[in-house]
Each structure stands twice: as structure tokens, then as C-alpha cells.
Nucleic acid binder design. Structure first.
Length: 302
DNA sequence: AACCCGTGGTA
DNA sequence: TTACCAAGGGT
């Protein structure tokens, strides 16, 4: 994020806090992980929400927590069951990491989700964002929560640009730190995220509904278009990801092991297919069964 | 730092 | 229709 010029006026900061927090009181969605959810439930939601929209997470989240209400419940389960229950949320390695995080929570933290940033970051699948989100949403901590929504809101309102840079810079983190209000840090995190999700959206921002339109530096500058390096698109047709998705979908939808011949039928390019199947096995998303079949991993951890 | 990893909704 | 995009993490 570039340095604002002129800088974001200090007088606007108080209004930023007041308006966004006030807007959140009325506009916040009633999401299940916001209704006195346990720390584990918050963690489950955060894993599922990594790169997956809320609407698709909702049903899987509900089923998941009904089946595995605590880390110990999931930790005692076969990893393949986690992959199956993950369904079509995408990036199924997240299911494996969530399972591994549950095992680590049982082994290292007596089955309770840890509070500290350091302990959270040490869990599989927990990076800067997720650690901050759990600190903030599960425990009411003062973490600096920087997700794609918050970054976009700050880029626009404070820095006056359409989109933030590709990666979080030290300056951006510092700026975000200075923006956290003295009181209500965890509500600030949720509120700025919600504003980005509902109003200050990536493609068609609803500025007419925005509580801070009058102090928005991007708007004041006339909505200048993003002028940074081109953001690479995500190719899909013919990629290994598509191939892996097809293979795993077949295994997920089957009650037990699937013969190699059936897997061969879902992807025409034999060389790529073999590479992807090997990759899935290497990733522990799939395991060989007998001589000529494959299945989701059926073994218990340890 | 750049690239890999799924899936489906939307403008 | 085709890109873009979504509460990122690991390497």
C-alpha cells in the first residue's frame, strides 16, 4: 500500500472508527460462528473460509461441528473422513491441516484451542491471518486482522488506491496497527472485514451505502484505477488442479476403494493423470489400497 | 517472491 | 461468455 499523500487526517480516524463500528451494529450478518461459537468452532470457520465464500461454507460448517464438536472428536477420526466431509469447499489440503491442527491441539494443549499468537501460528494450516482471526474472534484479543477485505478497505479509505499490493508489506501492517482503536479492537476487526465483504467489494463497491464515503481517499481522488503490476489470473482448464479435483471427487463420492480403471476414466491425459494421482498420494489426500485401487486415507493418525 | 493448491458464483 | 474473485497457507 502506498503512503497516503496528503496523509489520512487524524480527525478522520475517529470518524472512521465511529462510523464503521456503528454501521456494523446494524449491518453485521448473523453468521453461526458469530453466535457464541466455541474457539474450536471459530477455528473451523476460519479454515473453511480461507479462499471459500461464506455461502458455500455454511452447510459444511454446520455438519462438521455437529459431527466433531471438539478438537478431540476430530483428532480421533480418520483423516480421510475429514477430506470426505470437506466436500466441495476446495483446497482439500485444508481438511488435512485442520485435522492435523486438531491432533496438535489435543497433544500440546490438552484439547483446548490455545490463546497465544505463537502457539496458534505453530498449528498446521494457521498463518498470520488465521492466528489473528482466532485471537480476535474467539478470544476477543487485540490482533491486527489483515484479510483481503480489510486490506482493500484500508487501501481505499486511507491510502486512496483501488487495491492493495500483492503481498502484505511491513508498512501496510504498521498502518493497520495504528488504525486499531483503543477500545473494541475485536469488533473493529469484524467490522472492517464486514465492510469489505458487503460494501467495499472488489468489483462493484456500493459507495452510496458506505458509512465512510465522505472520508474515503480513493473516492476523493476520483476512483483512480489500479495501476500496479498485473495480477495473474488463475488458469483452470487442463491444469493439474482440475485433474486432481476430478480424481479426488470420484474418491470422495465413492463409499470405499475405487479401482484404478475408474480413475483412469476421469482424465484423458495418462501422463498428467499419473502425476496428479502420485501427487495426491504424496500429499496424503489419497492412499493406495491393495494392488489396483485407491481410497481416501482410512488410517487413524499415529 | 512466485507459484501451487479447488470450486463455483458473478459482473 | 469469460474473467475475476473468494475470511490464505505452505514452500
Amino acid at each position: 500500500m502506498t503512503t497516503p499523500n496528503p496523509p489520512f487526517p487524524v480527525s478522520d480516524l475517529a470518524r472512521f472508527h465511529e462510523e464503521v463500528l456503528g454501521w456494523f451494529d446494524d449491518a453485521a450478518r448473523d453468521l453461526p460462528w458469530r453466535r457464541d461459537a466455541s474457539p474450536w468452532a471459530v477455528m473451523v470457520s476460519e479454515f473453511m473460509l480461507q479462499q471459500t465464500p461464506v455461502a458455500r461454507v455454511l452447510p459444511v460448517y454446520a455438519a462438521w461441528l455437529e459431527r466433531w464438536p471438539t478438537p478431540a472428536d476430530l483428532a480421533a477420526e480418520a483423516t480421510g473422513e475429514a477430506v470426505r466431509a470437506w466436500g466441495r469447499l476446495g483446497y482439500p489440503r485444508r481438511a488435512l491441516r485442520l485435522h492435523a491442527a486438531a491432533v496438535a491441539i489435543v497433544e500440546r494443549h490438552g484439547g483446548e484451542v490455545p490463546h497465544s499468537r505463537e502457539e496458534l501460528l505453530a498449528l498446521p494450516g494457521v498463518g498470520d491471518y488465521t492466528a489473528a482471526a482466532v485471537e480476535s474472534f474467539a478470544f476477543g484479543g487485540r490482533a491486527v486482522v489483515l484479510d483481503t477485505n480489510v486490506r482493500r478497505v484500508f487501501a481505499r479509505v486511507v491510502s486512496g488506491v483501488q487495491f492493495p499490493a500483492a503481498g502484505v508489506t511491513a508498512a501496510e501492517r504498521e498502518l493497520a496497527t495504528t488504525l486499531v482503536p483503543v477500545a473494541d479492537a475485536h469488533r473493529w476487526a469484524a467490522a472492517t472485514m464486514e465492510l469489505g465483504a458487503l460494501v467495499c467489494t472488489a468489483r462493484s463497491p456500493r459507495c452510496e451505502e458506505c458509512p465512510v464515503a465522505d472520508i474515503c481517499r480513493w473516492r476523493a481522488a476520483g476512483f483512480p484505477a489500479y495501476d500496479g503490476p498485473a495480477r495473474r489470473g488463475q488458469a483452470w482448464d487442463g491444469t493439474d488442479r482440475q485433474c486432481r479435483g476430478r480424481l479426488l471427487a470420484l474418491l470422495r463420492d465413492a463409499p470405499g476403494p475405487v479401482e484404478k480403471a475408474s480413475l483412469d476414466a476421469v482424465w484423458p491425459d495418462a501422463k498428467q493423470r499419473e502425476r496428479c494421482l502420485d501427487g495426491l498420494v504424496a500429499d496424503r489426500l489419497v492412499e493406495p489400497v491393495g494392488d489396483d485401487s485407491f481410497a481416501l486415507p482410512g488410517h487413524r493418525p499415529r
